[in-house]
Write a protein that binds this DNA or RNA. Sequence first.
DNA 1: TTGAAAGCGCTAACAC
DNA 2: GTGTTAGCGCTTTCAA
Lengths: 355, 355
Amino acid sequence: MKKRATVRDVAAEAGVSPATAARALSGNASVDPVLARRVAAASQRLGYTTNVMARALRTQQTGTIGVVVPSITNPFFVSAVEALEGVLARSNRSLVLCDARNSALTEAERIEFLVSRMVDGLVVIPVSRRDSRQALNLAAAHGPVVQFDRYAPSTNTDFVGADNAEGVRQMVEHVQALGARTMAYVGAQPTSSSAAERLDAFRGLAGSPSGDRRMEFLDDFTTEWGRTAGEHLLADGPLPDAIVCGADLIAVGLLSVLQDAKVKVPADVKIVSYDDSMMGLITSPRLTSVRQPVELMAEEAIRLLGDRPDGEPRPSRKSIFSPTLVIRESTATASSRPSRTEHSDRAAPHPAAIP
Amino acid sequence: MKKRATVRDVAAEAGVSPATAARALSGNASVDPVLARRVAAASQRLGYTTNVMARALRTQQTGTIGVVVPSITNPFFVSAVEALEGVLARSNRSLVLCDARNSALTEAERIEFLVSRMVDGLVVIPVSRRDSRQALNLAAAHGPVVQFDRYAPSTNTDFVGADNAEGVRQMVEHVQALGARTMAYVGAQPTSSSAAERLDAFRGLAGSPSGDRRMEFLDDFTTEWGRTAGEHLLADGPLPDAIVCGADLIAVGLLSVLQDAKVKVPADVKIVSYDDSMMGLITSPRLTSVRQPVELMAEEAIRLLGDRPDGEPRPSRKSIFSPTLVIRESTATASSRPSRTEHSDRAAPHPAAIP
DNA sequence: TTGAAAGCGCTAACAC
DNA sequence: GTGTTAGCGCTTTCAA
């Protein structure tokens, strides 16, 4: 439990004042090159590393931004975190990650935790479009906040997301072009904005509910729910021509149940999904899925965080990106074969470091 | 960008001294109930939240422990993080998560970052048993460090892990009992201790390499490598009776390639895997896999972190837990059918909150 | 260019 | 039981 060396230690060792040592260490201010070298050497010898908390207390800046995700179990959120981290790393900043356990209450706690750690900004994927608002507003009073992927109406926060209606439109039109007439939607309750927007889009596109051409199964974004929904579908009579899933997590659960029941995908039923995560690549067939440009979204989010010249309030902004449908075997037509080359399109996954 | 209220603000508002306010806020010391109430009210009114960094600077305690994982992409590490967080939450502490991007260099940076943030302790799943040592030793000089799941020989750190030799023994004996004579091992290069121990165990159990009854494919713990290895296996002639995988990530990649090639699992070849992650449940067939008692391991790790009465050095300790083999369809015998009930054994996943 | 001194927000002695 | 004071480690005026 050795005590860490401080600026004073370094200063003493180098025979200068703490102020000079600090200046030399920071590199910015003008210091006699000779002294600077002496300080560097002393710092080296003592194994000095600056105490981030002390510095933060003084400068009110931590070089760290906080990220809150609903659940780290969802691979899409993992990829978002990795993308954000990549962007931050480029400017020598880091990220502290919090998991809200899909609870707005825990989320509020985590946001508070991060605020009290004086993060320079907050990127939040809100749990609920209703219950996340209060914590978000509170946080926004203390520093810049960007909502990511999901949105809870809030006056002082920016938003970066993808166009869910557009994504669902691509899904539906794709399977319709393949001949699907009846469709089921398996997604999450519209408590989050993304779930709500996807559901709304599906409803708007997939015919009338009374016409028996549309089915809806709503619960949450989990594999378990995908399984349960699959069982419902199997029990409810003839399968639809296509199943539209609100997330890969759901789709993989659903798929495993269908396969246990010897249902052939895509021959008997086509499956389209959302997120384009690694999960959709390890199933057989691989999943046709909507990809969101997480990298670009992450860049934009960090840009917006820093985009308050004097910390002054400014009108909040929304940046919406268009998603694209990646077509794979789960909707393949008879003539197309499993493509082995498909993996290559995500060949260079962004490595992660959190913070 | 409102300035946060401080103890002094609260004190002024309540008409007491900062010290009294602080005492009242902390709840520990003895304060006149009347004043205490006044302080509480004032704190409420001002929306006071204690500045964690300032407190830490003073007390040298942050109530936060740092966790460094090789890559958050590996579901086993995610489950470890979730387990650790669960344990910490129970004692009102939180965790800051870092991802080393599978690089010892990044790992060293992250460890340094955490040390400079004055975390109360460090749980590290080291990237490499060789290259992680230096950073670990450095960190151990400043506070308690526990290595988790993987081990890089180090004098001042404790270790909590599972018995890899035992796990592999169970895998091998299971498939042998099912009649497998030839076996392939698909795992990672022995740069990490777990990869090394699993490989060694396999070598010790699966017959001589010259006897043509054993094959080895080594690279890293990724799905991509599982695919590549699968292609090698298919190209290399007749498949073995069983394939022993060093991780679920590998197994799912391997499985997807085998299925593209119309190989039947388990009829044509049995697959056993390691980690018992969610990935093994979404494949078809589901994976027989070795489960490590992450929950218990996490508890033990946190216990060891706090187990240095005066921060005094003490002889380091190792805690080794026994894993268990969870049998599923990827090694099912002809008579056994896919069990739908299998999911229930992981019905209550430990929710996560990081920190 | 350098040093002395003040202070970020908090708590722990030490007096009263 | 309460207030005063000092100081955690750092940066940054302000003088010299």
